[in-house]
């Protein structure tokens, strides 16, 4: 008994020394502030086990809108932000909150709406579809939550020459909700809504909604990943965070992203610029 205990104590000391000598990221965990589309589409559930197996680093995902995710990072409450609003991401890096932006992947937005398409919005040009919805004054559900999808939607309204927020029209439903909740609302109201394809493919409660516009190059939805600046927030796990970023853009990470499919359809497309 006694020798065994002494042996254990010696083993513990050796282990401790080894740990001190070679600081390892094994067994650590990082927090990733990301968007509802990546979480709700099931991408992370597909992606993270592969990374955790490869690195031994546990990834905890907090899913919010892009705006809130960036704010979580800005406050130092996450190690990584993984979002889809390139302009806001550049600002995040420019104000010193993040180290640098790395492009990871893209998916695309689609406009969905009632199968009967009362506004005749179906087509290949997203801006003329938005114009058609405005002239018909048919119900349109907006995220209204400063998310990446919301930012894209506002961009299309601006290109269509419409400012739905100042018109305060009844047809424009500013729901202030996440993608899934907005889709539920649109399904219940039989309204038009802009959604990312990934969430749409994973969404089950579609009722009468169908894809009406897709494929327009303006509908591309770029996802970027940024390490929160350790110079601003000293507790940020820079080493572990960087290895997550490195893995995402590695051949392994990119092929894992490409292999995520729902019903045979690919949801996200690798897009790492090395």
């Amino acid at each position: 008994m006694k020798t065994l205990r002494r042996f254990n104590a010696r083993a513990a000391v050796v282990a401790l020394l080894l740990t001190c000598a070679a600081p390892s990221v094994q067994g650590t965990s990082i927090i990733v502030a990301s968007t509802t589309s990546t979480e709700q589409s099931g991408l992370f559930a597909h992606l993270l086990p592969a990374f955790e197996k490869a690195s031994g680093i546990k990834v905890k995902v907090v899913a919010a809108g892009t705006g809130q995710a960036l704010d979580i990072g800005r406050r130092g409450d996450a190690d990584i932000v993984f979002v889809h609003d390139p302009m806001a991401e550049e600002r995040f890096v420019a104000d010193g909150s993040g180290v640098s932006r790395t492009a990871v992947m893209y998916n695309d937005f689609v406009l969905v709406g009632p199968g009967s398409d009362p506004a005749r919005a179906a087509g290949a040009d997203i801006v003329s579809s938005f114009k058609a919805i405005f002239s018909a004054r048919t119900n349109f559900v907006s995220r209204g939550d400063k998310s990446g999808t919301h930012a894209a939607e506002l961009r299309f309204w601006a290109q269509a020459g419409v400012d739905p927020l100042t018109t305060k029209a009844a047809w424009y439903r500013d729901t202030g909700s996440a993608m899934g909740a907005a889709l539920n609302t649109a399904a219940a109201m039989n309204a038009y809504v802009l959604t990312d394809r990934a969430t749409w493919l994973a969404f089950k409660n579609r009722r009468d909604l169908k894809i009406l516009v897709e494929g327009d190059s303006r509908l591309f939805n770029q996802y970027g990943v940024i390490l929160v600046n350790p110079k601003k927030h000293a507790h940020v796990k820079a080493q572990a965070g960087q290895s997550f970023i490195d893995w995402l853009v590695s051949a392994d990470g990119q092929s894992t992203i490409a292999s995520y499919k729902i019903g045979g359809a690919q949801l996200f497309f690798p897009h790492a610029k090395k």
Partner: peptide, 8 residues
């Protein structure tokens, strides 16, 4: 989460 996935 399930609700927002439409998994009612």
């Amino acid at each position: 989460l399930e609700t927002s996935k439409g998994e009612l």
